[in-house]
Each structure stands twice: as structure tokens, then as C-alpha cells.
Design a protein around this nucleic acid. Structure first.
Length: 226
DNA sequence: AACTTATCCAACCGCCGCTAC
DNA sequence: AGTAGCGGCGGTTGGATAAGT
């Protein structure tokens, strides 16, 4: 292993400590539990191994499908992906990806697998001007950048697929619709940037009301498009 | 049976963003 | 405004084990 393996006794001490004091305050855990481990080591051991309801064993077909879909949308955001797989940890998902999926899928891509690109989505003009300009500066780094069509609106980027299906338009009222406008293609951009952009968009009130991570992760949206 | 190579996965490391001071 | 401390995350490491020769 990469480090010193945990003993049964250490596991027991950690478990007892969490049961007594609850999760969190990890810097205090080594002292409270009487363990010669750092806060990070304790946290990791709890999250990846000792926490109740952790699922062990092989990944099911449905789980693997979901991992592939979510990885397409989110990239290496293992904790977000694991959040959609009950009982699985980010470490499990990451290990599974690295051992089983990355090689297989890279080979498929080399043979012309489907590729995700991105479209521009129009939202109402935000009140937070500073955030908007940051987004535009970043967006313009894309070689195929197209400026927003209307001054009264601004844009975010969402994935669509090579075959032209599944482009998402977010209407003023927050509803989600398909958008087939080819002009709206902005280019290939990393998902991290998109999420960053999405988080920066709109006034604070709007952002608080709308759960963007949940929107992006809402697999029902992508079932038809990916 | 003995040795080598490949695979798996628990644990560690370094970085990042947030918060309190 | 700067800094220290924290929780959290993703990348990487390396020991254990399985598979191959």
C-alpha cells in the first residue's frame, strides 16, 4: 500500500470517536481518538472504509453506465460522481475508472467514439457585472468564440453531442428546453470551466435559488442526449 | 514450485477554496 | 489586505495479490 495500513484497533478507536463526537472537526479527531494519525488520514479512513452503508464489491452494469455518463459531463469530479452512486466513495469510483474504464474508453475514442461539444445558452442579464466580464474574458479564449447576440442577455455553456441532439436552452423562467440553433456553438471547453462559469452567472439571489450542480447532474436531462 | 509481471486499491501528498483573525 | 488553519478534492504511490510463464 501507499502508506501504513490501519489496524483493527485503530479502526475501532476511530469509529468509537466518530460515534461519540460526530463527523467533522477532523483536526481534533487524532487527539480525541488517541490515534497517532493525521487529521486527513482519519477523515479518509472514515469516509472510504468505516462509514456506515459503504457498498463493497464489483460495480454493477447500471453503476458503470452512470459513471461513464457522469464522467462525460463532469470530467474527473469524482466526489460529485460518487454522490450519485449510493454507497460508493469518490476513491472507489476513481480507482475503478483508472483501472477499468480509462483504458477501454480511450481506445473507443481513438476509434471515433462520440464526442461532447458545447453550446451557448442564453440567460437574462445578471446584475453582477464584474462576474459577467470575468466570464466573457475567459470565454474569448476559445478559438471559436461567438459574442452574445443580445446585450440584454448573457450566456453559459452546456454540453451537446456530435450528432446535434440534446442541446440545452435555459429559459428566463428557469425551465429547460432543447435548442437546435447551430449558430450557438461556442466550441470545446473543459467542463470545469463551464461549472465555474455557471456559478458566477446571474445575481446572487438567482444563483442561490437554482441548484446548478443538481441541474448539471440531473441525469434525466442527459439520458436522451448522451 | 519458483519466479516475473500485471492489476488492484488503500493510503498518502500537495493543492485549492473558504473562513476566521 | 495578508495569513494561518481547516476541510475537501484529485493525482499518485507502492504493497498485496492474482495471473502468467
Amino acid at each position: 500500500m501507499g502508506g501504513v495500513a490501519w489496524t483493527e484497533e485503530e479502526d475501532h478507536q476511530l469509529k468509537k470517536c466518530i460515534e461519540q463526537y460526530g463527523e467533522g472537526k477532523w483536526h481534533r479527531v487524532p487527539v480525541l481518538a488517541g490515534l497517532n494519525r493525521c487529521r486527513k488520514s482519519c477523515r479518509l479512513r472514515w469516509l472510504n472504509y468505516l462509514r456506515p452503508n459503504i457498498k463493497r464489491g464489483r460495480f454493477g452494469e447500471e453503476e458503470v453506465d452512470l459513471i461513464i455518463k457522469l464522467h462525460k459531463i463532469l470530467g474527473n469530479r469524482w466526489s460529485l460522481i460518487a454522490g450519485r452512486l449510493p454507497g460508493r466513495t469518490a476513491n472507489d469510483v476513481k480507482n475503478y475508472w483508472n483501472c477499468h474504464l480509462s483504458k477501454t474508453l480511450n481506445a473507443q475514442d481513438a476509434e471515433g467514439g462520440q464526442m461532447v461539444k458545447y453550446v451557448e445558452v442564453i440567460r437574462p442579464k445578471p446584475q453582477n457585472i464584474a462576474a459577467t466580464s470575468t466570464l466573457r474574458e475567459k470565454t474569448q479564449e476559445s478559438p471559436s468564440y461567438l459574442p452574445p447576440k443580445e446585450e440584454s442577455s448573457t450566456s453559459i455553456l452546456m454540453p451537446y453531442t456530435e450528432d446535434g441532439q440534446g442541446q440545452i436552452f435555459l429559459a428566463d423562467d428557469g425551465s429547460k428546453n432543447l435548442c437546435m440553433d447551430e449558430q450557438s456553438i461556442v466550441g470545446d471547453l473543459p467542463m470545469d470551466f463551464q461549472i465555474d462559469a455557471v456559478k458566477r452567472m446571474g445575481n446572487e439571489e438567482d444563483c442561490n435559488k437554482f441548484d446548478w450542480d443538481d441541474f448539471i447532474l440531473d441525469t434525466d436531462i442527459w439520458n436522451d442526449s448522451l
